[in-house]
Design a protein around this nucleic acid. Structure first.
Lengths: 150, 150
DNA sequence: ACATTGTTGATTTACTAAGTAGACTTTAGA
DNA sequence: TCTAAAGTCTACTTAGTAAATCAACAATGT
């Protein structure tokens, strides 16, 4: 039930790019250092996200990556599907990669897993990168409040 | 976000054993044939489930496996955790294998994944094998109703 | 011209999933 | 007590994927 390391890196990179959406492009090595992601590996990830139509890039001095659309319009589900594939726990309940069930008689299992899939999808399709950034900000503020109170 | 093949096999085997809970023990090859699971592979799986305290076995002629507890008392979550490990999408939000977050600042992501984890856990800890069997039965009945109507 | 940055494809390394082989142990029943 | 039928155990294999790295290349700004 895990998101791969690659998927996690992709999400973190997208968060970084979302934070910089209005400030212009960010370079691979900046993200790599900030998020502690191996640079060469990150190159591939960003390229995939670019090919999927989420990112824009510019080469040469002063180059870098930036989001094509505002963070309000990109959901976590989109990124995870690009990098890790379908969100469903079993192939037979994925709408993206539907594989027929070997045992029709055990479809009680299928119906449970469909519930799980729907729950996951509902959350991840309902949350944009703008939301995530907002959450992070909110949490940081709360934290500093706590520190001030001390 | 997938359950492994092994995990799926384990679930199917447990469903079989649940259906036979009152009828006595079932042999590996019966399950293997019915569910189309490689026999040798299934041996490992059942052994793991036995060591985890879910199954009982008897060797020799007329031997086989059976549930220790009634299907009402075993949840899907238990089996998946035994075979596939934690249910959380990221290590940093698992209660079973908590790994600290590399980037405290991006904990917005963590909070989303915690929501996902909770949604998954809520479903899988809330459904027992008795429930799954009931669902399957219900679906089969509905299907035969449809056939009769034709 | 040149350093900087992204692009591309090949390759590596490590790990895990999935499955197999074979010797061993227990058991029921002829 | 012998034997065939079951589970048990240890080791191994094979395939695929995750994660990462390498090196040559292409575009860009100064």
């Amino acid at each position: 039930m895990r998101i791969s390391k690659k998927g996690e890196y992709a999400l973190r990179a997208m968060i970084d790019l979302s934070l910089n959406f209005k400030k212009g492009s960010v370079q691979i090595h900046e993200i790599s250092e900030k998020e502690k992601i191996p640079k060469k590996f990150l190159e591939h990830i960003l390229l995939e996200l670019k090919k999927a139509g989420l990112l824009q890039s510019k080469r040469g001095i002063g180059g870098g990556y930036c989001l094509i659309k505002p963070p309000e319009e990109i959901t976590l589900a989109q990124v995870i599907r690009i990098i890790d594939g379908p969100l469903a726990p079993l192939g037979c309940v994925s709408e993206w990669a539907h594989i027929s069930c070997p045992e029709e008689k055990n479809c009680g299992l299928q119906s449970v897993m469909l519930e799980v899939r729907n729950a996951i999808v509902k959350i991840l399709e309902g949350i944009t990168f703008a939301d995530v950034c907002k959450r992070t900000k909110g949490m940081l503020e709360k934290r500093s409040e706590r520190i001030i109170k001390k």
